[in-house]
Design a protein around this nucleic acid. Structure first.
Lengths: 194, 194
DNA sequence: GTATACTAACTAACTGGTTAGTTCATAATA
DNA sequence: TATTATGAACTAACCAGTTAGTTAGTATAC
């Protein structure tokens, strides 16, 4: 069976599993080849080297995220819930991002930077128009939201290890995260609560 | 110069630098020996093997943390500020913890677990006595606090990379984190906002 | 239609450098 | 002299990346 595209696909899939499990330094090219049921050399033909392969895998999946759900500055709890659900369903991606943050050699991904700047601009506008509170800066808000939404991932040193009971209670957790984000973003005009 | 204790100390110091920089898989024992200006063999005499050395370094520094500052359930913003300052001053420890969370082989550290359970119990009591709000569970609160206090560390994929401008503004950041924690923990009876 | 030439996809075996861990002779100390 | 600390050299395994060669598919020529 000769099929370049299929082989590339299998390599990328295996690489995702390997890198998210072991990071760049810990990943083994031989193991990726074996998992992809292809020859090791094909990896070097299609993807230069190990680091290049990692970058390709990471960017591919990040692109998938950016297309998966959109940012709604007027409904930040809803956005947090979507991030939470997505990350819970894709723990491998979270691991990949964390490995990258730890192992990165000062490089930054333009793609992510742009996406963040766009969101921050939207938040600023939402603050001006009074849709959300102005107690926190847009950048602070965005970071807080992302951090709260991903706090219960296994990659977080303070997440499940603090709160092992949360393991099964996904719904309660999402609901609490949404309320927390609501508190920070400032309930534009809820008149009263409870 | 013959001094076993001093050699052990130097090895531990070098190991901390190496492991926090490269993780377990990426760390090189030869590099640690060179940095500690000791022979590689000494490492194996004093600390069994590489993984054992890592565990020793991690536990040692975690103990240091637990003794460094105490938990004040009635002043959670203050606690968050202390965690923030400590972590900002010790970014290496945060990296070490993150490497561990990624590389761990399902082991849990009893020491940490105990410390967390104690804090959660204190939070529960503080809720009963009305010192803090009851909108969020103690475990949720504690995780949120830790996560917010450490969100702007370089290890966080959503921290400085989202908000590079925060680099120099430590004071503003701490103040915002304290307010955020206050929002989540405080105001037992928030009648209205704005 | 079938023989030939050409190319893309793939493979097995190898290479050179690295790395965790060991051995053993020597030096310091008591 | 006996014990312990130390370091240089060593070893076996590992691993990223390479090489030289094979196989399958496809186009061209007769």
């Amino acid at each position: 069976m000769r099929n370049a595209e299929a082989t590339k696909e299998k390599i990328l899939e295996a690489a995702m599993a390997e890198f998210s499990a072991y990071g760049i330094a810990g990943a083994r090219v031989d193991r990726i080849a074996k998992m992809a049921k292809c020859n090791k050399n094909m990896i070097y033909i299609y993807f230069e080297n190990k680091e290049q392969l990692f970058s390709t895998v990471l960017e591919m999946h990040l692109t998938r995220v950016y297309e998966a759900f959109d940012f709604t500055p007027e409904d930040l709890p809803g956005y947090a819930a979507r991030v939470f659900d997505f990350m819970m369903a894709n723990p491998e991606l979270m691991r990949l991002m964390t490995w990258f943050a730890l192992e990165q050699k000062t490089e930054q991904l333009d793609q992510r930077k742009e996406a963040h700047n766009r969101k921050i601009a939207e938040l600023a506008k939402a603050q001006e128009t009074g849709h959300i509170g102005t107690d926190f800066s847009p950048a602070f808000l965005l970071t807080s939201i992302m951090v709260l939404a991903t706090a219960w991932m296994p990659t977080n040193p303070f997440g499940p290890s603090i709160d092992p009971a949360s393991a099964g209670k996904t719904d309660e957790l999402r609901e609490a995260i949404m309320r927390a984000v609501g508190r920070l973003a400032g309930e534009p005009a809820p008149k009263e609560n409870r």
